[in-house]
Design a protein around this nucleic acid. Structure first.
Length: 427
RNA sequence: GGAGAGAUGGCUGAGUGGUCGAAAGCGCUCCCCUGCUAAGGGAGUAAGGGUUAAAAGCCCUUCGAGGGUUCGAAUCCCUCUCUCUCCGCCA
């Protein structure tokens, strides 16, 4: 959520920033709502003050044994007037809140301009895409060829956009997750957390998925509404919801492995082949909760932690910064890591690392006690995939494939793979 | 699933219709005293919001959440959520 104070005092600046995203902020409309809110709120508070004062007077008169009848007639109409004014105020406040919750985050100045993903800027590359002396297969041909990846079985059980992994391939995904968790907890200083996969609407409002992206979520029940998490970011970031964290405890660095559930509404026809885009996938997520002055540095560090995983796996990748038109709703700045997929002859997103500034913290009321002011102030939140396990699995299959259709197990994963050094059809 | 108890400030815990945002204690901060320490004395110590350019001041809201009764609710009524205890069931 954008600071309501900023919306009141500098709406033109807000509109200018949001316009970079192609988001139109109705300055005049907001200002007129805001003016009505102000006058109604002042009215309501004055009426309440009057009510409180007369209630006190009545109490005192009663205690003194005086006749309270005239005092009662004096406040006869107050209740009704207060009630109707309160109702009007509540209407306009919920209208304003709906608008506030629907506004995307303000962009940092260093986010490049651009309307869509074609304007994203590549910042660096790591690793050389391997030269094949045969035509590389994609992960579908490889996995099905090895009889370890089964989309038909998944379709029978659950429909499209699901996969069944068998034997060493299932284990390979588990190995990837283990490696990542071990790196982030052992080398990067994150604390591992295990969190609920089903959350309340408030948690999703806190991180920004609701109310705007209701259709992208899997809802389990209507009453009360429960949702499957689309990313561990939701339960993990909400750990600091409505909390005031002491400065000495910062930064909070969490890593969690969870499945992620996405309805993928609106992506019909995109990435229908294989397990690039699934309703259910595994991900290791990094979350940092930091003091505001630290968030810019934290984004660089967090992105580096995700990169370290790809380097350990010796997977070529590139780092890009998302442009104003492509960046996510709540982010003020985002780096994507894209891993090289020989089967697609392209770099594909495997991690997205974002600084949310105080956007999520304001929605969650997540604060810290700033020693300088002594006051509770909003935290900054960041998260990034470290990395998506399902896509890492694809990358390993495609980058480590051999001419005979087998797949060599990357060195970093060997300790987690028992005797498997290679995935072959014989298994 | 059944029965019961409970939810108050950083913590413990009092408060059953009126000057209660809330006693007391602990903790914390500052001051005084004492040549260190300990003990003692005093003052302060919730969050959110409105008004303001900002501050001060003033005002509003908040005693798990939401409704209701009342001139007035931490206190009475209803609904819900969560926690604890016992029984049952269970990975």
């Amino acid at each position: 959520m954008i600071d309501p104070k900023l919306l009141r005092t500098s709406p033109a600046d807000v509109a200018e920033n949001l316009a970079r995203r192609n988001f139109v902020f109705d300055v005049a409309g907001y200002a007129s709502l805001e003016a009505r809110r102000k006058s109604l709120q002042v009215d309501v508070e004055n009426l309440r003050a009057e009510r409180n004062a007369s209630a006190k007077r009545i109490g005192k008169a009663k205690a003194d044994g005086e006749d309270i009848a005239p005092l009662l007639t004096a406040v006869e109409d107050l209740g009704a007037e207060l009630e109707s004014t309160e109702a009007a105020l509540q209407d306009i406040q919920s209208e304003l809140r709906d608008i506030d919750l629907g506004l995307p985050n303000l962009l940092q100045d260093d986010v490049p301009e651009g309307a869509d993903e074609s304007a994203n800027v590549e910042l660096s590359r790591w690793g050389e895409p391997r030269e094949f002396d045969f035509t590389p297969r994609d992960h579908v041909d490889l996995g099905e060829g090895l009889a370890l990846l089964d989309f038909n079985a998944a379709a029978k059980i659950s429909g499209s956009r699901f996969a069944v992994l068998r034997g060493p391939l299932a284990r390979l995904q588990r190995a990837l997750i283990q490696l990542m968790l071990d790196m982030h907890t052992g080398d990067h200083g994150y604390a591992e957390v295990y969190v609920p996969y089903i959350v309340k609407a408030d948690a999703l409002i806190g991180t920004g998925q609701l109310p705007k992206f209701e259709n992208d979520q899997f809802k389990t029940t209507d009453e009360p509404p429960f949702y499957l998490i689309p990313t561990a970011e939701v339960p993990v970031t909400n750990l600091v919801r409505e909390a005031i964290v002491e400065a000495a405890e910062l930064p909070l660095m969490y890593v969690a492995h969870t499945p992620c559930f996405r309805s993928e509404a609106g992506s019909h026809g995109r990435d229908t082949r294989g397990m690039i885009r699934q309703h259910q996938f595994e991900k290791v997520e990094l979350v940092q909760i930091v003091a505001p002055s630290q968030s810019a540095d934290a984004l660089e560090a967090l992105t580096g932690h995700a990169e370290a995983v790809l380097r350990a796996l010796e997977l070529p990748y590139r780092k890009i910064i998302l442009c104003a038109g492509d960046i996510g709703f709540g982010a003020q700045k985002t780096y994507d890591l894209e891993v090289w997929l020989p089967g697609q002859d392209a770099y594909r997103e495997i991690s997205s690392c974002s600084n949310y500034g105080e956007f999520q913290a304001r929605r969650m009321q997540a604060r810290w006690r700033n020693p300088e002011s002594g006051r509770p102030e909003l935290l900054h939140t960041l998260n990034g995939s470290g990395v998506a396990a399902g896509r890492a699995l694809i990358a390993v299959l495609e980058n480590y494939q051999n001419a005979d259709g087998s797949v060599t197990v990357p060195r970093a994963l060997r300790p987690y793979m028992g005797d498997f050094k290679k995935l072959t059809a014989a298994i």
